[in-house]
Design a protein around this nucleic acid. Structure first.
Lengths: 194, 194
DNA sequence: CGATTCACTTACCAAGTGGTAAGTTTTTGT
DNA sequence: ACAAAAACTTACCACTTGGTAAGTGAATCG
């Protein structure tokens, strides 16, 4: 699948010949279905965005509120990062390519982003999440989770081998990190920063 | 400079001819100094790691303790992300390339990582930072800051244009996020980010 | 049945790719 | 001053790139 190659090796590093060879067909068979490599990228973007939304959007509709739902999303992201690392890698690759590709993935994911920020806003209104800019909170949480889930090399640099067991530990630590960062302090005298 | 191109466009997307044209020389002038494109990459890795260490390592030696020093590092990362985005982008690119390149940057940055985790451990011992795995804390903080500083497309997706003013806001929000995540509850009384 | 459309493949192509070989200018050491 | 080494350039080369043109066998349709 093109998504896997683009996500792990990068768009420019994967030739149509490579892709075709993996699929056991010829490059021209690909160019028959998509008019150019760039058109193929657009199709892959749409597909990746769809899969991401399917993975995560459900968590926003789940029962439970406040922290428990955030926890649910984080667990899903970790699951995706473990089972489909190329999906998250692909989104990052698109960000780097920039231009039209970024606009496309942004547009594709807009409904999900919109739902997530709306959800955060409501939780803040009800005092279950520390008040702050919901968009920035989403970015912080996103990049924190994505980092812990995908920055394999960085993890290795701090002496953490990406084994299954360490992933469980990592997820627990991260949830604790996020919990501390996001959840509004209950104690009356404990003042939130800022 | 090769670092800039590799960091923004990706290693495979930048040809030696492109690089040479930017520098106003010929491709073979590059291949005279480095035996291959790959050898050039190694040199750029070493240089990038050196510059990163110069930028950040000083913050670990600064006066102040606990949160104030973390804040100092975050401010430095933001400064680098604003002024030299290609540097952080390059590190991410190396992670994606993987293999020997990753090992090299890991080895280059090891002294800094070592100092940072040691610092965290001490702060935890003295109760100024919430106790947790220091390596994972570093990764979480690293990816959170790097995300807020560099994930321009993601920020755009949540409706944040990367202007100078928004960066200041973003940094303040992020410091607040990190403060909540890292600082031990007991230490909340005295120091909160402005 | 025959024609047409579909889903390819084979055969190319011009423009690049990293890299080599050999020649040329510039700097350096004595 | 002059040779030698350094720092290039020009000229190539084999190979890969995305993309085009034309042909081919199988399915579909009237």
């Amino acid at each position: 699948m093109a998504l896997e190659s683009f996500g792990t090796k990068g768009f420019d590093s994967v030739s149509l010949d490579d892709l075709a060879a993996d699929l056991g067909i010829t490059k021209q068979a690909i160019l028959y279905h998509w008019s150019s490599k760039r058109a193929l990228l657009d199709a892959v973007i749409d597909r990746a965005a769809l899969e991401l939304i399917i993975e995560f959007d459900g968590a926003l509709s789940e029962d439970g509120s406040g922290w428990s739902r955030v926890e649910s999303i984080v667990r899903r992201i970790f699951r995706v990062a473990m089972r489909r690392p190329e999906l998250l890698g692909f989104i990052r690759e698109i960000s780097r390519i920039g231009g039209d590709a970024s606009l496309r993935v942004t547009a594709d994911l807009e409904p999900f982003v919109s739902r997530a920020t709306t959800y955060f806003e409501r939780e803040m209104d009800e005092g279950r999440i520390r008040r702050c800019d919901s968009g920035l909170l989403l970015v912080s949480a996103y990049s924190t989770v994505l980092g812990a889930a995908t920055e394999v090399e960085v993890l290795r640099a701090v002496g953490i081998e990406p084994t299954l067991r360490s992933t469980v530990v990592r997820r627990r630590e991260l949830l604790s990190f996020l919990h501390a960062a996001m959840v509004a302090p209950q104690a009356l005298n404990a003042q939130a920063p800022r």
